[in-house]
């Protein structure tokens, strides 16, 4: 049994331009490409289609060989033991969710719009997504209003998600995740959102990647930020 600390590295980084399909059928691939392009559409900036989100989702769903990138981004970790068992079971559920979800997407498309999803107009596709999500297309955020929200967990697992929420989550993951996973081609998701991400995961391990310049600029004095320091008696010996 290989302990988790010793999981070997397999494969290499995913090629975002790959046309090879590991999980989807050709029809499913084209449908996912069309649907993710409505979740993060292309406008003056690239969207899910250009970032190759479909490649990302296909690799993820293909089994358990693309779940965890190696820390330095050189490939992927080969899981074993109970961890592998748990992921295999989870992935089998997610594969079923996608297969059935995509079939249903076409069924709803035919029923509502008279054609399969990938052949509908963008408006027609949005209408179908409204139906399967059970809610109107989200409104744009406006300033100057107040909406209250209630508590939720940190982190965002996909275990147990239904098709549409899973697709939305995976689209964001494929658009904004590290390029090693296949999406976010040429870091276009990061460039779009204004996140100066690392060139490679390895750069985050050895001090190469620094975000220092994005912190507060210029000289500063703690006494200006914390006026209490001007009156307090206790100060660190070293500070």
């Amino acid at each position: 049994m290989t302990l988790k600390a010793d999981w070997p590295v397999i494969n290499g980084p995913v090629d975002p331009d790959s046309e090879e399909r590991l999980f989807f059928t050709e029809h499913e691939w084209e449908t996912v490409e069309a649907a993710t392009a409505r979740i993060i559409p292309t406008d003056q900036d690239p969207g899910a289609r250009e970032a190759r989100v479909v490649v990302f989702i296909d690799r993820y769903l293909s089994g358990i060989d693309y779940v965890y990138a190696a820390a330095d981004g050189s490939g992927f970790l080969k899981m074993s033991g109970r961890y592998a068992d748990a992921w295999r079971a989870r992935m089998a559920d997610m594969q079923r969710t996608y297969r059935e979800g995509l079939r249903n997407l076409d069924d709803v498309s035919v029923l509502e719009q008279g054609g399969i999803f990938k052949e509908l107009s963008e408006e027609g596709q949005d209408r179908v997504l409204e139906v399967i999500s059970g809610a109107p297309k989200p409104d744009k955020v406006t300033l100057g209003t107040k909406e209250a929200v209630t508590t939720f967990l940190q982190g965002s697992f996909d275990e147990g998600l239904e098709f549409f929420p899973a697709l939305c989550l995976h689209t964001k993951q494929g658009f904004y995740g590290d390029p090693v996973y296949g999406g976010n081609k040429e870091q276009m998701g990061w460039k779009f959102i204004g996140f100066p991400g690392p060139k490679s995961l390895k750069d985050t391990m050895d001090g190469t990647y620094s975000t220092h310049e994005y912190f507060m600029e210029g000289e500063f004095d703690w006494e200006d930020l914390v006026p209490q320091l001007k009156v307090s008696t206790f100060r660190d010996a070293e500070a």
Binding site: P41, L129, P138
Partner: peptide, 13 residues
């Protein structure tokens, strides 16, 4: 927002 132009705009802005 969970999807669409609204999501993209919110992220960008």
């Amino acid at each position: 927002p969970s999807w669409g132009d609204a999501l993209k705009d919110a992220d960008r802005n």
